[in-house]
Amino acid sequence: MYEYILNVIADVVIEFIEGLVETYPGLEYLDVFPLVKVVLRADVSAATYDKVAVISGGESGHEPTHAGFVGEGMLTTTICGDIFSSPPVDSILVV
């Protein structure tokens, strides 16, 4: 019998992202599309951003590690995949 400290295993990535966004107010979670998990800088909007946006995507192994690199001077946004799988190809179009 295994015991987990997770509520629902299928929601672990979303719960991690929501916790990260609550901890760091400079981040936003784009939760418009349920299958696309996007973390982005809260101070960046397409209308006012005059720099090159650096976007990264990757799987969420033990946690969505790329989400921890979003911030000023680092990534503009990241797209998180599910546990041990890359994000969907079409998810880059959302960003």
Rank of each mutant, 00 (worst) to 15 (best):
1 M>H: 14
4 Y>K: 12
5 I>N: 14
7 N>G: 07
7 N>L: 03
10 A>W: 09
11 D>Y: 03
11 D>M: 12
11 D>G: 05
12 V>E: 09
14 I>N: 14
17 I>D: 06
19 G>Y: 05
20 L>K: 08
20 L>Q: 12
20 L>T: 02
21 V>Y: 12
22 E>I: 12
25 P>S: 15
26 G>H: 08
27 L>N: 11
27 L>F: 09
28 E>R: 09
28 E>S: 11
29 Y>P: 10
31 D>N: 06
32 V>L: 15
33 F>K: 10
34 P>V: 12
35 L>V: 00
36 V>E: 15
36 V>W: 04
37 K>C: 15
38 V>E: 07
39 V>Y: 02
40 L>A: 11
41 R>F: 06
42 A>Y: 14
42 A>L: 06
44 V>I: 15
45 S>Q: 11
46 A>T: 10
47 A>R: 15
48 T>Y: 10
49 Y>M: 07
50 D>H: 12
51 K>M: 13
52 V>G: 04
53 A>C: 13
53 A>N: 13
54 V>T: 12
54 V>M: 03
54 V>F: 14
54 V>N: 10
55 I>S: 09
57 G>H: 11
59 E>F: 00
61 G>H: 04
62 H>K: 05
63 E>D: 01
65 T>S: 12
67 A>H: 04
70 V>Y: 01
71 G>M: 03
72 E>C: 07
73 G>Q: 01
74 M>C: 02
75 L>C: 01
75 L>E: 06
76 T>R: 01
76 T>L: 04
79 I>D: 04
79 I>S: 01
79 I>H: 04
81 G>C: 02
81 G>E: 02
83 I>S: 08
84 F>W: 00
84 F>H: 02
85 S>E: 08
86 S>T: 05
86 S>G: 04
87 P>G: 05
88 P>K: 05
88 P>F: 06
89 V>W: 00
89 V>C: 00
90 D>S: 02
91 S>N: 10
92 I>M: 13
92 I>F: 09
92 I>A: 08
93 L>H: 08
94 V>G: 02
